[in-house]
């Protein structure tokens, strides 16, 4: 691996891109905007930000990004927040999945409209050993995580048990927005996933290792 900061792409078609870039810089990584397939070259990982999932999905489709994003997710760490979680999910309800690379089921806007958007504080032991400091979780017209299967496991829940974050190997999904808070522990956690993925050795090329994928 080349030296220098970890390069994390942010899908920059629409949404909370600058916020993720700010959190990544604070956590010591280098953010890179991704608007076209060629922008994925040389990235260590990718963030699919919050925004409007219909808008991001349509733009990704129109500019030929869906398949390159799937191939990228097959070999590199990817984190989806809110709309990004919808992009990752294999089951998004009535509509066909967008990337469909993570074994989770989500439902759009299941927490309600903007009047129901909320902030809460979660204890997430997964992101920090011995974590006792609650994480400020901001839910904005958020999608709900309704199922996790296969290797996907729930890593955070609301007080009533509702799951709100999941991990499946190098894939991470959160229904809330760590990037609009000052707390960058989730970004540091993602960087840890990236360095662990690096240690186990990235596949030779993206193309070779995604050949066996069923999409």
């Amino acid at each position: 691996m080349e030296t220098g900061p970890i390069k994390v792409g942010i899908l920059a078609l629409q949404g909370g891109v600058a916020e993720h870039a700010g959190s990544l810089r604070r956590a010591g990584a280098r953010p890179v905007a991704v608007r076209l397939p060629e922008h994925l070259d040389g990235l260590d990982a990718l963030i699919l930000p919050g925004g409007e999932s219909t808008t991001i999905g349509k733009l990704a489709k129109r500019f030929g990004l869906l398949e390159p994003l799937r191939q990228f997710a097959a070999v590199r760490p990817v984190w989806g927040t809110c709309a990004g979680m919808i992009l990752l999910a294999r089951d998004i309800g009535a509509d066909p999945p967008l990337l469909g690379v993570m074994d989770i089921g989500v439902r759009r806007n299941a927490f309600g409209r903007q009047a129901d958007s909320f902030v809460t504080h979660l204890l997430v032991p997964e992101i920090e050993e011995g974590a006792t400091r609650p994480f400020p979780a901001v839910f904005i017209r958020a999608p709900q995580l309704v199922a996790a299967s296969g290797r996907a496991r729930i890593i955070a829940r609301l007080a009533d048990g509702t799951p709100v974050a999941a991990r499946e190997g190098r894939l991470l999904a959160t229904a809330f927005h760590p990037e609009i808070t000052e707390d960058d522990r989730f970004h540091r956690y993602f960087l840890k996933i990236i360095s662990q993925a690096g240690e186990t050795g990235p596949p030779e090329t993206i193309r070779a290792s995604s050949a066996g994928e069923n999409r």
């Binding site: 949404g15 904005i140 927005h177």
Partner: peptide, 8 residues
């Protein structure tokens, strides 16, 4: 936050 998610 909602406005932030509408950006772009």
């Amino acid at each position: 936050g909602l406005a932030q998610m509408l950006k772009g």
